[in-house]
């Protein structure tokens, strides 16, 4: 049993529950918090489950840059 995967899974589940809770609240920064949590979950799956952390820096930077750009654009429009 790989404990890094277990910890990653636990964090992802907690972040999912937090996202669902925040979505039912009504305040100014809900959107940015939901998208920020989405960013963290996406990175968690890619870097730990998919082992992208072991890959060349090119693939890591490309994924983070794409995700950052996409979520920023979605939030900004």
């Amino acid at each position: 049993m790989e404990w890094t995967f277990n910890i990653t899974w636990l964090v992802l589940i907690v972040l999912t529950i937090i996202s669902a809770v925040f979505a039912n609240l009504d305040f100014a920064y809900v959107a940015i918090i939901i998208l920020g949590l989405s960013f963290l979950k996406f990175i968690g799956v890619a870097f730990f489950f998919m082992e992208l952390k072991k890959a060349n820096v090119f693939w890591r930077v490309l994924l983070v840059a794409f995700l950052g750009l996409l979520l920023t654009v979605v939030w900004a429009v």
Binding site: S19, A23, I34, L35, S38, K41, F42, L70, V74
Partner: peptide, 11 residues
């Protein structure tokens, strides 16, 4: 899905 869920269901 981690992109679809927050944007479609929550945002």
């Amino acid at each position: 899905w981690l992109l679809l869920f927050p944007i479609i269901y929550l945002l």
